[in-house]
Write a protein that binds this DNA or RNA. Sequence first.
DNA 1: TTTTTTCCCGTGTACGAACACGAAAATTTA
DNA 2: TAAATTTTCGTGTTCGTACACGGGAAAAAA
Lengths: 371, 371
Amino acid sequence: MCSIHYTNVLQQPIKQYIIETNKQIRIKDIAEKAHVSIGTVDRVLHNRGEVAESTKKKILKIVEELDYHPNILASTLASKKSAVFATLLPQPPSIEGYWNKPFIGIKKRIVELRQYGVQIQPFTFNQTESKSFVTESEKILELKPDGVVFAPFFKKESVKFIEKLNKQEIPFVFIDSEIKNVGQLSYIGQDSYQSGLVSGKLLDMIIPDGNILVIHFAKEMDNQNHLVQREKGFYDWFLNKEDNKHQLFTCEIANTDGTGWMKKIKEKIIRKKIKGIFVTNSKVFFIGRLLQKLNSSDIKVIGHDLLKENVEFLKKDVVQFLICQRPEEQGYNAINKLFRNIVQKRVIAKENYTSIDIVTKENVNYYKGFK
Amino acid sequence: MCSIHYTNVLQQPIKQYIIETNKQIRIKDIAEKAHVSIGTVDRVLHNRGEVAESTKKKILKIVEELDYHPNILASTLASKKSAVFATLLPQPPSIEGYWNKPFIGIKKRIVELRQYGVQIQPFTFNQTESKSFVTESEKILELKPDGVVFAPFFKKESVKFIEKLNKQEIPFVFIDSEIKNVGQLSYIGQDSYQSGLVSGKLLDMIIPDGNILVIHFAKEMDNQNHLVQREKGFYDWFLNKEDNKHQLFTCEIANTDGTGWMKKIKEKIIRKKIKGIFVTNSKVFFIGRLLQKLNSSDIKVIGHDLLKENVEFLKKDVVQFLICQRPEEQGYNAINKLFRNIVQKRVIAKENYTSIDIVTKENVNYYKGFK
DNA sequence: TTTTTTCCCGTGTACGAACACGAAAATTTA
DNA sequence: TAAATTTTCGTGTTCGTACACGGGAAAAAA
């Protein structure tokens, strides 16, 4: 009895695959069965040329019956159609920068899709100049790509860009952050609010008491909506807790060029008796450097993203947790969404929230490689 | 100056892709350049027939020069070779069982590879009967598949199976657990020891003091080497800690049919003043049920794998952490390894350690879907 | 020198779909 | 009734690779 049940669960369903896989119905088979030529079937399937209504019906019926699925290999081989995708991402300050990571994933998928004739044209903008975003986005519109992946970093400028994309009927996918309901094919990224909650829980767990400092390293906060969301989630963790022993403070650092910001934070740490720090983005290594200088090991730190420098501080126990969102995977998935929708014409999911990975010294090694 | 640097990082490298992608070098191009026929180049590339040493050299040189890569589409289309892969996994007790998850990933990859003529023939064995493992493995040898994915659950029996696979020159991939250096193509799974360390750290973090109980739910421990490894990592976390406040106990439960095991554990919890429990596999829901009955909320629990029932206890705050290893992804990757090596004849990595994911109530929702 | 054998290599067809070209049949117009 | 149109459909080539078959040249044997 039991074994029958088991069999149903695992073995039966797959036998189907074997059978399904064996028969490849060709357009020729349909033609023969309908007593027409291949060309006629072709016209019916692609809505080109003219076909008598009666034969069209007959053919479609047979297509249904035989459950015909075109062979993608032969199809793309013959058509030689090549899609061009454009990407618009912030410029990473160096090869180690965060924004190089999604790009690694993008490259990987593009290389895999080379055979399908998919090409990519990357554009980058300067995170501190909305103007560069506009300039580059106009270049994209000029290029008229078949699809676009971009990070809607500057909201106002992005909305304008989107309007034009919609007018030109160019599908697009958001990566990293999103604008709701503006016609995007999909969004690839993290649920920022929820990741803030996770950060809150973790930091709460490791500091029994003492106050907490939330730090934004960002020029203009309104452009970085997801940093605000993360902060909100973080605060909410403590708000929703009965008998909360921590007090929270927030601090925005717009400029990290000199050492002015260090003084500011240092002072705040002492004055407010800070025992825990949450950095809302990948710039947590700044705090790592600071704490190393101060030589204070009783302050716990949590931040985002597996930048090389961040990982170093994680391994040195200066940073306790890094929240990570698998940016390479995001880039990979973004291109894949475009490919599946535009080239393969499949229906795809509107949202694709990346997992919120909790990374510590002990499991970091298994996050580093991107496969 | 800066912008030049940026350009180098992101924009330049990709322009190359565009160029690379454009030119598809055909075997015909090589033939023309070498002043030979297509057939000759074909023979050189596939080591078939006989070709004069001199022309062979000449052709290979041109292949290098032009950086020729065969068009997989055309190749598989023309060859019509279809690989058959076999899988040998434990039978899941129900559709919700753990071992259904890797299988979901396997199915997904198989569906994607249907066009490539890849087929799958699944076999399952009973976790409590090594004999069923032997029977099924013999069926596989009879089938003579082009590749095998299996979980070496019973060590002795697996070794025998492997010997025969090697003799028949059938490549195989381990999933979930591994036997070292027996000729496997690859291993897909977690680093059990390291995941034990992570569990130790987490449990240590959330219980300031009190003793800890490690529970194995398994019939025969020697078959489940990775459970032992997890335990070892767990213990080592506390051993390597200066000033450890916890005492650890281990308990093996071979049979969960009656309620006998519950009494045993209940007694142990009280007698040893247990404040934390670590379950070394996915059976943590048993402890969830027990604790719910006991109505004791001051015991923290950590276990493995996102089974539906486990997730429920996670959401009810009965279980604090679940360590997860993305079993669907593992199944997907296992088939992919076989495909890349056998069909596409690429070189693949010997080991593929899955990430050690830390899952809590707050981020669990982003782990549930498999994309 | 002729025949046989070995060694090289070119040609042709197939895989399944896409698409262009133009021919046959049906219809309308002169 | 013939000519001009329109509607409908069949044939042939192409994509890049795989592979079978057989032909020609060179080397060995007669």
